[in-house]
């Protein structure tokens, strides 16, 4: 477990907290940290050492957000913080554009195709969706089976080269 050895809690308190939060992962996709997801919007501490972590939800109905909030509190409590506040902000709206490069690589290694291209403009029907490469064999001959996969944030795809099904993390 990362115990943030290189970031001094006294001189760089916010950075220290952010490093601790690297242990908090998405409960559905445990290879991704909340930092990879880009949902940690701010970390502040007051003079008394009370910490406030501000997060933003991915999808409106994402049930993982409650679990993530609990996990943040738990991680900070175990690091010795007593006064912990987790706030949620809606604006600016979360977008898959905030997924880190490291996060995209981890997704692919885990077997989930990362979002292709930047978010926005998915309104056209039967539109030319960008090519999604199979995370297992790398082929581009893939097809969408359903817009909604195992979770609201993912679509269900199939690779016509290796015949494997896989999830695709949709652009939002």
């Amino acid at each position: 477990m990362n115990s943030a050895p290189d970031i001094d809690r006294i001189s760089q308190p916010a950075a220290h907290v952010r490093a601790l939060l690297e242990d908090v992962t998405d409960p559905e996709i445990p290879v991704l940290t909340i930092g990879d997801l880009g949902i940690v919007r701010d970390v502040t501490l007051d003079e008394a050492g009370a910490v406030t972590v501000t997060i933003t939800p991915t999808y409106s109905g994402c049930p993982a957000m409650t679990v993530i909030e609990v996990a943040i509190r738990d991680r900070l409590m175990r690091a010795g913080f007593e006064a912990i506040s987790v706030k949620t902000v809606l604006a600016p709206a979360w977008t898959t554009d905030w997924l880190s490069d490291a996060g995209r690589t981890k997704l692919e290694a885990y077997g989930i195709a990362p979002p292709v291209g930047s978010a926005g403009g998915r309104g056209a029907l039967f539109s030319d969706d960008p090519v999604v490469r199979c995370p297992k064999c790398g082929a581009g001959e893939t097809e969408k089976i359903s817009e909604f996969g195992s979770t609201a944030c993912k679509a269900h795809y199939r690779c016509r080269a290796c015949d494997e099904p896989f999830d695709y993390f949709k652009c939002l």
């Binding site: 939800p57 999808y59 409106s60 902000v89 809606l90 604006a91 600016p92 709206a93 979360w94 977008t95 978010a119 998915r122 309104g123 056209a124 029907l125 539109s127 817009e147 909604f148 609201a152 949709k170 939002l172």
Partner: peptide
């Protein structure tokens, strides 16, 4: 703020 998030999701529902 609510509308900005909802719009992204409703775009997929409409499609």
């Amino acid at each position: 703020a609510i509308a900005a998030k909802s719009l992204k999701e409703v775009t997929y529902h409409r499609r």
